[in-house]
Amino acid sequence: MLNALREPSTNYRAMTDEILLHDTEVVDGDEPIRPDEIELPCFYEVEFSAGDGSTQVIENHGHKMRFPLSKLTKRGVSPENAACATASGNSMEPTIADGSPIAIDKGTRHIIDGKIYALDHGGMLRIKRLYKLPLGRVRLVSDNADEYPEETYSLMGPDSPKIIGRVFWWEVFD
């Protein structure tokens, strides 16, 4: 038994041989886009300058994020359906932290139980896990359930959230 602890097994060696380290490449914002990249537009939330102070989700046609085309293809995301946004608030922590960039597949609006979606809910950009319920209803679940209780809505009601798309990527630094 003691020898088994001292010498790595063949399986252990095989596992470590499979770990690949990739070089990090820093791209200057002015560098031309490469043929194997795509720049995705970013959504942001703006507050109306007059009226009741409600918000509206709009697409920012200036700010963009670069992604390798191979990553989108691997996830089944068409570049014309992809966009980015910034998470705001702590409702999806620890999975998605406040201020984290996210990428959304606007082509996937059907609900896959437990996946994370971006929603336009009364003009507010929200990010939640969705679960289908009978009779055209949906559960909105936050990963930070202690502070943000589960919500239920009809997908056809006046207060229903509109699915922008499925969140397929996010970035979190610790």
Rank of each mutant, 00 (worst) to 15 (best):
Lys132Trp: 06
Phe173Met: 11
Arg126Gln: 07
Thr10Leu: 15
Ala145Tyr: 03
Glu93Asn: 08
Thr73Ile: 11
Arg75His: 06
Gly114Ser: 02
Glu47Phe: 01
Gly76Met: 09
Gly136Pro: 00
Tyr117Leu: 05
Cys42Trp: 08
Leu130Tyr: 03
Leu5Asn: 11
Glu93Leu: 05
Asp17Arg: 12
Ser100His: 03
Ala14Ser: 13
Glu31Thr: 13
Pro79Lys: 15
Ser49Asn: 04
Leu2Tyr: 15
Pro8Ala: 15
Ile111Ala: 05
Phe168Met: 12
Val57Pro: 00
Leu5His: 12
Lys64Pro: 01
Ser142Phe: 00
Leu5Lys: 09
Thr152Ala: 13
Glu93Ala: 14
Ile33Cys: 11
Tyr44Leu: 09
Ile19Gly: 14
Ala83Ile: 03
Asn90Gln: 12
Gly51Glu: 08
Thr152Ile: 13
Lys106Gln: 10
Lys115Arg: 09
Gly53Leu: 07
Ala14Trp: 11
Met92Leu: 11
Asp113Pro: 01
Met124Ala: 11
Ile127Ala: 03
Gly29Ile: 12
Gly62Asn: 15
Ser70Ile: 09
Asp28Tyr: 01
Arg66Val: 06
Phe67Asn: 10
Tyr153Thr: 04
Arg166Ser: 04
Ile96Gly: 06
Leu21Ile: 07
His110Val: 15
Gly62Cys: 14
His110Trp: 11
Phe168Ser: 07
Lys128Trp: 04
Leu135Ile: 12
Phe67Glu: 05
Lys128Asn: 06
Asn144Phe: 01
Gly99Val: 11
Asp174Gly: 09
Gly53Arg: 15
Leu72Phe: 00
Asn60Ile: 10
Ala145Phe: 05
Ala4Gln: 15
Ile112Tyr: 04
Ile127Ser: 07
Ile127Phe: 10
Asn81Cys: 13
Arg66Cys: 02
Tyr117Gln: 02
Pro41Trp: 06
Lys115Cys: 13
Gly62Trp: 15
Ile38Arg: 13
Phe48Ser: 09
Pro149Asn: 14
Thr24Asp: 14
Gly122Lys: 00
Val77Ser: 02
Met92Cys: 06
Thr152Gln: 13
Asp113Asn: 11
Arg66Ile: 02
Gly157Glu: 09
Asp146Tyr: 08
Cys42Arg: 07
Ala87Tyr: 01
Ser142Trp: 03
